[in-house]
Amino acid sequence: MPKLKPATQAARREHILDAAELCFARNGFHRTTMQDICREAAISPGALYVYFSSKEDLIAGLVERDRAEFAQRFAAVADGSDFLGALSELGNHYFNEQPVHRRTLCLEIALESTRNERVGEIYRAVDREVSQSFETLFAKLADEGRIAPDLDIPTVAKVFSLIGDGLFTRRVVEPELDMEPIIAGALNLVGKLLNVVPPDQVQASSKNAPSDVAAPSSQPAKAKRT
């Protein structure tokens, strides 16, 4: 039998992950069998096991796919000048545009991480990476004088994550919820948490700084990440 081209292999792998995603979201991790996923993907068990040897492997593949997508979307937040606007777009994607079954699956994986050691390791590793991404971003903004939170940066990042987790969970359990005003309210709260410095004040601070010395951050020393 001829070997499949890498592009064909990648497409089949994605197709299997799509099927697993639907099955896990619909029936839960424990009630879903490998046979269920084969039926959803319309493939034989042999074809499935070429790519994934267990349901845990499938979860790992799904989590990695989501992590890669998040990293790409987060880059727009980290590189943009209007980070609150970029955060709004990020929130709109995950709370509104993302398919319902994907949000349900995220909650299912989070719950399974409390019962399954391997799933827990996978979930917590990605969760740490996401949290670290925001912590690094907030530290950068503080160093640039664009935010001046009263709390230290690690605590700010943790509170921010908890706000996001709460919104996400509420969206899953109440799928008909109108998220637009809630996202706007959450961003207002995040703005106060970060204590965003108006752009004109940031620019004025930069102009007044000595040319051979970087403009001092308005962030208290205790808020800088170590």
Results as ranks from 00 to 15, higher is better:
Pro2Asn: 13
Lys5Asp: 13
Pro6Ile: 07
Pro6His: 09
Pro6Gln: 10
Thr8His: 15
Thr8Asp: 15
Ala10Cys: 07
Glu14Lys: 07
Glu14His: 00
His15Cys: 14
Ile16Pro: 15
Ile16Val: 07
Leu17Cys: 01
Leu17Gln: 06
Asp18Phe: 04
Glu21His: 05
Ala25Glu: 15
Gly28Asn: 14
His30Ile: 12
Arg31Leu: 11
Thr32Trp: 11
Asp36Leu: 07
Ile37Val: 11
Cys38Glu: 03
Ala41Ser: 06
Ala41Cys: 02
Gly46Ala: 12
Ser53Met: 02
Glu56His: 09
Asp57Thr: 01
Leu58Glu: 12
Gly61Val: 03
Arg65Val: 01
Asp66Met: 01
Ala68Thr: 03
Arg73Glu: 06
Ala75Pro: 01
Ala76His: 07
Ala78Arg: 02
Asp82Val: 12
Asp82Met: 05
Phe83Met: 08
Gly85Ile: 02
Gly85Pro: 09
Ala86Gln: 10
Leu87Ser: 12
Ser88Gly: 11
Glu89Thr: 10
Leu90Glu: 11
Asn92Ala: 10
Tyr94Leu: 02
Phe95Gly: 10
Asn96Pro: 13
Glu97Pro: 14
Glu97Ser: 14
Gln98Pro: 07
Thr104Ile: 11
Leu105Cys: 13
Glu108Ser: 12
Glu108Asp: 13
Ile109Leu: 03
Ala110Asn: 05
Thr114Gly: 08
Glu117Asn: 04
Glu121Trp: 02
Ile122Ser: 02
Tyr123Ser: 02
Tyr123Asp: 05
Arg124Val: 00
Ala125Gln: 10
Val126Ser: 01
Asp127Val: 11
Asp143Lys: 02
Pro149Ser: 02
Pro149Asp: 01
Asp152Trp: 03
Ile153Ser: 13
Pro154Gln: 05
Thr155Glu: 10
Thr155Arg: 11
Val159Ser: 12
Phe160Glu: 12
Ile163Ala: 03
Gly164Leu: 08
Asp165Lys: 10
Phe168Tyr: 08
Val173Ile: 13
Glu176Arg: 06
Glu180Ile: 14
Ile182Phe: 00
Ile182Tyr: 04
Ala184His: 02
Leu189Thr: 02
Leu189Ile: 03
Val190Met: 08
Gly191Cys: 08
Leu193His: 13
Leu194His: 06
Pro198Trp: 06
Asp200Pro: 15
Val202Ile: 09
Ser206His: 09
Asn208Glu: 12
Asn208Tyr: 08
Ala209Ile: 15
Pro210Asn: 10
Ser211Asp: 15
Asp212Gly: 13
Ala214Leu: 07
Ala215Glu: 13
Ser218Met: 08
Ser218Cys: 13
Pro220Asn: 05
Ala221Gly: 15
Ala221Trp: 13
